[in-house]
Nucleic acid binder design. Structure first.
Lengths: 195, 195
DNA sequence: TCAGGGTCTGACCGATCGGTCAGGCATGCT
DNA sequence: AGCATGCCTGACCGATCGGTCAGACCCTGA
């Protein structure tokens, strides 16, 4: 055997992503991942400190983008925040379909752990922004339905091209979201989104 | 101890519903349920043949209503099917919030078992009806987003009164769904959308 | 009084989980 | 040659899982 470290490391990561997306984090054993890679379970635990560290490394890119989106939202309010939240999350969900699928349904206990503790707060702020920071139940419910539904849709429609899926989701969100200010029409808000 | 059979039976059912809704089916052990009831794990398995039977009995009422909704949809097309699917599913999701929460995220393996095998087909038909039986990706994606999002929202907003939640969800669905022309069933407006 | 059925339990089972550990096997440097 | 280092593995560990089983504890009816 004796492959290059980066090679095996990456293979394990890819295999874990595939298995997690199908059977979930809890529903996938280290043995399953090792079998898919073609190595032993001990090898998996040689490259990753434990199962949770494997998940953390798998989610890191998506979490980084989510963090960026959250940073952008801190300075925005009203319709601008709605627009950035909508386009930002749709883009993120489409790009990281597989990672989103992993987290689907494993929230309550998994996201309380240290590596993911702040995700819940970020997603709450995201939902708040999408609801136009309204405290009425209508917009808040709509925001949750859309965010959760988009995650599910991205996890399900794996065979649709990125841009087509993104366009359909954005159209849906724009139609479904109540603009926060009636007299202030929704506009693209071409904020410079440097990365 | 020695409570009446129906009493303990119901208590186990209620405790299981509570635990499943929080930690999921796979994430809840029979020991957890027994601890919440205040009896032994063996007692749980005295009242229910196995863990899956416990889940099946828990979901039976919701599944029955879902089956009814599916039956109603078989004779409908176009806008009528959309309307019935929307109101029917929103009503179902609001009424069976806790049961919906259980199934959230445990789909791929759990719903393949005999007691739940037909749920997937029903939910596909439901999604199809909500999409106005269109084969364009836009409506189909929108239908999935809404169905999944509604499930998630009902599982999350446990403290909102039924009618308020139902009203908000129906408003959202009506705004988000593209109404299909009643006199033109399935108009192929897809003008070279392929990639 | 006693038999019998319904209810409940502790003890136990095999399987599987995440994780540890000592050591094998290459490779490369001195 | 000798040694160190990185990669990998089989064997093993304690914990927990779903599930089984013999028997204890009621209550009731004969």
């Amino acid at each position: 055997m004796a492959r290059a470290v980066s090679e095996t490391h990456g293979e394990i990561l890819a295999a874990a992503a595939r298995r997690f997306a199908v059977t979930g984090y809890r529903g996938t054993s280290l043995q399953d991942i090792a079998r898919e890679v073609g190595c032993s379970k001990a090898t998996v635990l040689y490259h990753f400190a434990n199962k949770e560290a494997l998940l953390a490394e798998l989610m890191a890119p998506a979490i980084a983008v989510l963090q960026d989106l959250d940073d952008q939202l801190t300075d925005l309010t009203g319709a601008a925040a709605q627009e950035v939240a909508a386009t930002g999350f749709v883009d993120l969900a489409v790009r990281f379909r597989r990672e989103i699928a992993v987290l689907r349904g494993e929230f309550p206990e998994l996201l309380c752990q240290p590596p993911f503790a702040h995700i819940q707060r970020i997603s709450e702020r995201l939902r708040d922004a999408l609801a136009g920071h309204s405290d009425r139940p209508g917009p808040r419910i709509a925001a949750l339905v859309l965010l959760a539904g988009i995650s599910e849709a991205c996890a399900e429609f794996v065979d649709i091209p990125d841009d087509e899926l993104r366009a359909a989701l954005l159209t849906l969100v724009r139609r479904a979201i109540e603009p926060v200010d009636a007299h202030l029409p929704r506009q693209p808000t071409t904020e410079d989104k440097d990365s």
